[in-house]
Design a binder for these strands. Structure first.
Length: 580
DNA sequence: GTAGGGTTAG
């Protein structure tokens, strides 16, 4: 309040206009008429407000200024970067350099962020050069920006090196490096760094909580997730409560506790599309399509407008629950009622939905008729999944071969094609595909599973022997599997399950990470405890079938989250009804 | 007259 009184009338007029085009233009006109159109402080404020309104107006305004000074350049670079106009911010930066104006630490942090948003590794490295030559490499803001830039552009190693050299580690510095690991799929390492941060006496802030909750969600670490929830409740994070709430919803849903996620959702005093989408997607993952659709329709009554991601969440929920009719209606409403143009991701959902429901013709028709432009590989991949699920070998082989011709470097397609050949009994072809993969030296992602025992999360990977009780676990697993065989379990043939590496083949089937995690969970918990597993990849046919039998012989409920959804195994059957 | 880290899908 007291500051505002020192401002000139013209400045106050700008503040009053705020980030709105018409009022801003009026004030601008007035500035010119009254002769104060060249006062730098007014121009700067005008420019910073304009950035939030229209990038075209910003450009016009900026280029009308005869000789922009360093501060004006800073403002326009910083603001455009912050608002997500990354390319514009880089263009302004280039103009700044060409005008022989030295970038400041403010400019540099902004352009580094723009490069991060664009994942522009090469350009970012050039800017890093500017940082070094200008001496701003000692600036904390610049360093933190560089850490997250390298993480997002795909060079986690350099990100870590910069972090390690930081003389002072603020919360933001820690948040940058923790998020770097989380975003690159190293949730375990992210959590390890979080503990280091606390040991070094730095208090987590609300951003830390959001990042750590994402890591918990990735790993299924409900123990730490609950701890963060309690921590958040005890703090006074009054800003960004929606974002924190959304992170909690996501964490609980991905850790298998949809009910708890819903509790958080219902308790939120304010919410937005993102929070609703997170809840809808949580239902979808659990196969609760009806609740997902219901929530989607309720959004309107709350004055919220679904976005493209919301539609992906609803449609994929319909696909996983077999709600074909509802899915069709939702898809139609996307264009008609919400004016959104369906993208590849929505087409994938639709093909997936028809395919899972066994409507292969509809799926194929959808690709041919509804998708106008050339169907993307992702759409064909969904079609291929449907062919495999419903054992349509002829169409499956055709689709797989087409996919290989357009995406010859994607190992997933080879695995799928070879599995289809195997199901069709064409072993000669299986071998051929396998050899093609070896020739191209394509590798699959390494799989891992986690299991929670006594509030602690344990991680297993295929053939893993790092656990101190490895021998007991393997022995117990062998015992378990022989009891399953007595109960009627037949292992899938090795060729169906073929793995890429010889080393992996040795352990194939028998020691997939989810089986190890389940064996450990059964050994370590008492009879009534539900076993909860989180796997980073999709489950294979053999494990799916084996776990059904394990749920009988061990008389236990086992819940597995794979890359796509939850499987609730009870008394020999699974909640996904064998479609996943 | 201006900064760095953070939410929803596949």
């Amino acid at each position: 309040m007291e500051n505002k009184q020192h401002h000139s009338p013209a400045y106050r007029a700008l503040l009053q206009a705020g980030p709105r085009l018409k009022p801003l233009q009026q004030v601008h006109a007035h500035l010119i008429v009254s002769g104060s159109g060249r006062i730098r402080s007014l121009l700067t404020k005008l420019l910073s407000l304009a950035c939030a309104v229209s990038i075209t107006y910003t450009r016009r305004l900026f280029f009308a200024i005869p000789i922009p000074d360093s501060f004006l350049f800073n403002t326009v670079v910083v603001k455009t970067s912050k608002l997500g106009f990354s390319i514009d911010s880089l263009l302004f930066y280039r103009r700044m350099i060409l005008s022989d104006i030295a970038p400041s630490n403010y400019t540099l942090t902004a352009v580094i962020k723009s490069c991060a948003d664009l994942s522009a590794l090469k350009l970012g490295r050039v800017i890093h050069g500017h940082v070094l030559s200008s001496g701003y490499d000692l600036d904390l803001h610049v360093q933190a920006a560089l850490v997250s830039f390298y993480a997002k552009a795909g060079d986690l190693g350099v990100a870590r090196k910069i972090f390690d050299k930081m003389p002072e580690r603020t919360v933001v510095a820690w948040n940058s490096i923790i998020s770097a690991y989380e975003q690159n799929g190293f949730a375990k390492e992210a959590i390890g760094l979080f503990y280091l941060m606390r040991d070094s006496g730095v208090q987590p802030d609300s951003a830390t909580c959001v990042i750590v909750l994402a890591a918990c969600a990735q790993l299924g670490d409900i123990g730490l997730g609950r701890w963060v929830h309690e921590y958040v409740a005890g703090q006074d994070f009054d800003v960004n409560v929606v974002q924190l709430g959304t992170s909690l919803i996501n964490m609980y849903a991905r850790c298998g506790h949809v009910g708890k996620a819903r509790e958080v959702f219902d308790s939120m005093r304010e919410s937005n599309v993102v929070a609703w989408t997170a809840m809808i997607s949580g239902y979808g993952m659990h196969g609760s399509g009806t609740q997902a659709v219901e929530l989607f329709y309720q959004m309107r009554a709350h004055g919220l407008w679904p976005n493209k991601i919301t539609f992906v969440a609803v449609l994929s929920a319909c696909a996983h629950a077999g709600l074909v009719h509802e899915g069709r209606l939702v898809f139609a409403s996307m264009k008609q009622e919400y004016g959104l143009v369906p993208g590849v991701e929505h087409h994938v959902c639709m093909v997936d939905m028809f395919g899972r429901a066994g409507l292969l013709k509809e799926a194929y028709q959808f690709i041919k008729e509804v998708i106008r432009e050339k169907p993307s590989p992702a759409v064909w991949t969904a079609m291929l999944g449907a062919c495999k699920m419903h054992k349509n070998f002829d169409l499956g082989v055709e689709v797989a071969e087409h996919l290989l011709s357009i995406e010859p470097e994607n190992p997933g397609h080879y695995v799928m094609l070879s599995n289809i050949y195997a199901l069709a009994g064409r072993m000669d072809r299986v071998e051929m595909v396998r050899n093609m993969m070896i020739r191209k030296s394509l590798k699959k992602e390494v799989g891992y599973s986690t299991v929670e025992v006594d509030q602690r999360t344990y991680l297993f990977s295929m053939g893993d022997k790092s656990n101190p009780e490895t021998n007991e676990i393997y022995q117990y697993l062998d015992e378990l599997m022989s009891r399953c065989r007595e109960a009627g379990y037949v292992p899938e043939s090795e060729s169906v399950m073929h793995e890429l590496e010889e080393e992996e083949r040795e352990h194939a089937l028998r020691y997939h990470s989810e089986k190890l995690a389940i064996a450990f969970g059964l050994l370590k918990t008492s009879d009534a405890v539900v076993i909860r597993i989180v796997k980073n990849l999709r489950m294979c046919e053999d494990c799916h079938s084996a776990i059904k039998f394990i749920s009988i012989v061990a008389n236990r409920e086992i819940i597995v989250r794979d890359r796509l959804r939850f499987h609730d195994f009870k008394d020999g059957s699974c909640s996904c009804l064998d479609y996943w």
